[in-house]
Amino acid sequence: MRIGGRGPFGLVLRRCLAAVWLPTLLAALAGLVLQRAAPPQLADAAAATAAVSSPWLMLPLLVAAIGAAVTAVRFWPPFAAQRPGAETLRRLQRGPLAGNGATIAGALTAQLALTSLVLGALAGSFGAPAARAHVEPRPAREGLLLPGTAPLTFTAADGPVCRTLLLRPHAGLPDGPITATRLEVRADGELLTTAPLACVEDRQLLRFDFAPRSVHELTITATAGTVPLWLPRGAVVLVGDAERPWPLNAALVALIGLVPTFAALALALLGGRVAALPTVTTVVVAILFVSIAGELGPLPAAVRALLRGQWLPASPVFPASIPSLLVGSLAMILSMSWPAGSRR
C-alpha cells in the first residue's frame, strides 16, 4: 500500500481536508443562498456598488477555520499534553517543535486550500469588482474645507496611473442653514471631472471615474455650500487603472485568514500543557469566533477589501495582521521553552 504524507504535516493536512471540505462547501452554499435571500439594503446602490458586502461570505471562512483548527487539535494529542498518547508522540518526534509546528502548518495549509477555493469561487457572486490598487494620497495639511478656505492638497508619491477617485469626507454642522458643499477636484492642476460633486452627510461616499492618468497631486476646493468638510487620512482614495489578478487577491485574503488560526492553535498548544482537550477545543473555537465573526482579527477587513476591489498588497490589511501574528509567535516560543511531560 502506498502511503503519502507520512509526517504530521501530511497526516493533519489530509485529515483536515477530509473532515472539513463538506462543512465548508455546505456553509458556502448556505452563505450564497442567504446573501441572495437577504441582500444588503442600500441607500445609494449606484455609488456603493461592490463596496458593500453582506456578512454571509464570512460563514464558509469561519467554518473552514474552526473546522481545520478543531480537527488538528483533536487529531494531534500533544495539543493536550495529559491526553493518552501525547508522550508517545513527543518521544517519537524530532526537532524543537516536536511535530507541533508541522501539525499547525498542515491545518493552515488545509484551511488555505479550502478558503482559496471558496473565495475564488464566491467573490464574483458576492459582487467583488476587479482588483485594483487603492492609493491613499497624503494630505499636505489637515483643515476644514469650506467656500473661502484654502484648498486642501494631497500628494501621491509615485504618481500612479489612476482612473477613479473615492472621497468620503467627515461632515460637520454648519452655523446657518444646511446646504450641500460643492467640491472641485484637480489633478496636477487639471480639472478631473465636470460632474457635480456635492456632500451633505457625514462620511458620504463620492465616487467618480476619469480618463486614466498619472496623479501626483490632488487639489480639492470647496466652491459652494455651508457644510464644513474634513478629509482625514483615508478619506481620499485613488483607484489605480491597472487591473490585478483577482484569484491572487482572493488567495491573499485566504492567506490573511490563516493568521487568527495560527494564533489560536499556538495558544492552544501553550494552554494544552495544563488544560484538557475539551478546554483547549473551546478556547480555539472562542478565539476564532471572536476574531472572525466578532471582527477582532484581520480577516473581516481583508474580505471587505476584496469585495471592494482593493488590491491587497497595496492595502493596510497586511500590517493589521501583525498583532495576531505576534501573539501566535510568542505562544509558540513559550510552548517550545516549556518542557512537556515533566509531570506525570
Partner: peptide, 17 residues
C-alpha cells in the same frame, strides 16, 4: 495516540519518525 489512522498509516508515520 492517533485513533483516526489505519494500522498501515500509523506504522508508516512511526517509520518516518
Amino acid at each position: 495516540p492517533i485513533g483516526v489512522l489505519s494500522a498501515p498509516e500509523y506504522l508508516a508515520y512511526v517509520g518516518a519518525e
